[in-house]
């Protein structure tokens, strides 16, 4: 029940907004968001935007994940080829 999906904010009008989630458009309330702007990716739960996704943090998490992949790959390669 705590499902929330990320969607892009494409219209804003007086506390209400329209989001696009992979082609599906939906009207949502923006009453619980402090600083939503057009183009933001927003988590939508039960007809409300509940959070703006933080792009910088997303990039950082992804960078960490990719780093882990590279490290493991490098280790694997070293084990295969000790020279």
């Amino acid at each position: 029940m705590c499902l929330a999906v990320p969607a892009k904010l494409i219209e804003m009008d007086n506390g209400m907004g329209t989001v696009d989630a992979g082609g599906v458009r939906k009207k949502i309330s923006l009453l619980l968001l402090e600083d939503a702007a057009l183009g933001d990716y927003i988590l939508v739960h039960a007809g409300f935007g509940i959070q703006k996704l933080d792009e910088k943090q997303a990039e950082e998490s992804l960078a960490l994940l990719r780093e882990a992949v590279t490290e493991v790959e490098a280790r694997y390669k070293n084990e295969q080829d000790p020279m």
Partner: peptide
């Protein structure tokens, strides 16, 4: 609902 939903109902 939990804290995720309660604010939407409060609003």
């Amino acid at each position: 609902g939990f804290e995720t939903t309660a604010p939407t109902v409060g609003a």
